[in-house]
């Protein structure tokens, strides 16, 4: 599912260059409310890190702390190897970011807004400013509206302009908070592709989202937030593997199969008739002895090939065998204990 190229790059640089983002016990308390609670993030260099969590789980507050906008109540954060917010001045020029949606002066044109933010960066050479602004606008497909005032922009155009702002200078780290918010499917695809190409290029990308699809398709690593705590993090594969694997056996000999599986110490949790349900209009032939039944059982530590061997040895007619991992979505619901889009 993930982008193979992106994963390859991230794996290499993660080993060689340490962590792009690292936090220890990072905590933020707003008066009585604990927004972020003891966060220990580790984002390797070159990774595309998906920062997942329902709305209100503390993702944006974490990003604000990483960028020095908000002071942590406790704990420490290091970005590109330097402590934040102390080294904001030397770190942030190397970081491009989109934080909690794009924001621009509505009375200025798109190009003027970008030039303004660029002028705020002491390390951005003014000599090349106009060219870099034009280039960034071109990159996000806004060249034709560069001179239009931002208040005439649609939400999606502002989102693109926000991305252009993050790309004004070559960056070592991109922090993108909900980058596809407000974009049409075409725009969403473009952003995904952009992230992939940046990652291929060695840029570390930290993408926060409450949309799993976005993360699943581009990320090499994920971290999951729930109610201010980081409940899981690791590579996408580790994350997936950590989920429960189940064996699905398609066989007409359901009872025999159940016996064999139980004999292997597996927990059989169900069986459903798996006839040509869709074709034949549902449970039309339940009494047919030769109809296939899918028996499911938790795989646990048993190797799948051993399961198949045992079934065959016992004469179970195995017409299909599949090992099913929990989907990321299921995994996510498991971890956060609540659906997406639920404000805690």
């Amino acid at each position: 599912m993930g982008d193979p190229g992106g994963l390859g790059v991230s794996a290499e640089s993660a080993d060689s260059a340490g962590l792009a983002i690292e936090t220890h016990g990072l905590t933020k308390r707003f008066r009585s409310q604990l927004a972020v609670d003891g966060l220990d993030l580790a984002v390797p260099h070159g990774a595309v890190f998906g920062f997942l969590g329902p709305n209100g789980s503390g993702k944006t507050t974490t990003i604000r702390m990483l960028l020095g906008l908000v002071a942590a109540t406790a704990g420490e954060a290091r970005v590109l190897g330097a402590g934040m917010p102390r080294h904001v001045d030397s770190v942030l020029p190397r970081v491009g970011a989109l934080v909690e949606g794009p924001a621009f002066s509505p009375y200025l044109s798109g190009a003027a807004n970008l030039a303004r933010f660029d002028a705020a960066d002491r390390w951005a050479p003014s000599r090349t400013r106009a060219a870099r602004v034009a280039d960034a606008l071109e990159q996000v497909g806004l060249a034709h509206v560069a001179q239009k005032k931002v208040h005439a922009y649609s939400l999606g155009m502002k989102q693109r302009l926000g991305l252009a702002n993050a790309l004004l200078m070559p960056r070592e780290l991109l922090v993108l908070d909900e980058p596809t918010n407000g974009l049409d499917p075409q725009g969403t695809r473009e952003v995904r592709s952009l992230i992939r190409s940046l990652a291929r290029d060695g840029t570390t990308v930290f993408v926060s989202s409450h949309l799993l699809a976005e993360v699943e398709q581009v990320c090499s690593h994920v971290g999951v937030m729930s109610a201010g705590r980081l409940v899981a993090q690791g590579t996408l594969d580790e994350f997936r593997d950590a989920g429960e694997a189940r064996a699905l056996v398609r066989t007409p000999d359901a009872d025999a199969a159940r016996r064999v599986l139980q004999g292997l110490g597996m927990h059989v949790d169900g069986s459903i008739s798996a006839g040509r349900v869709a074709d034949d209009g549902g449970v039309s032939r339940p009494a047919d002895a030769s109809a296939d039944v899918v028996v499911t059982a938790t795989l646990e530590t048993t190797p799948p090939e051993a399961v198949v061997a045992a079934l065959v040895a016992d004469g179970v007619r195995v017409r299909g065998f599949e090992v099913e991992r929990a989907s990321l979505e299921q995994r996510f619901v498991e971890l956060t204990g609540e659906g997406f889009d639920v404000v805690q």
Binding site: A71, A77, R86
Partner: peptide, 12 residues
């Protein structure tokens, strides 16, 4: 880097 962030005393 033991106290990287602004605690209450630092704020004061």
């Amino acid at each position: 880097m033991s106290v990287p962030s602004a605690g209450p005393s630092r704020k004061a």
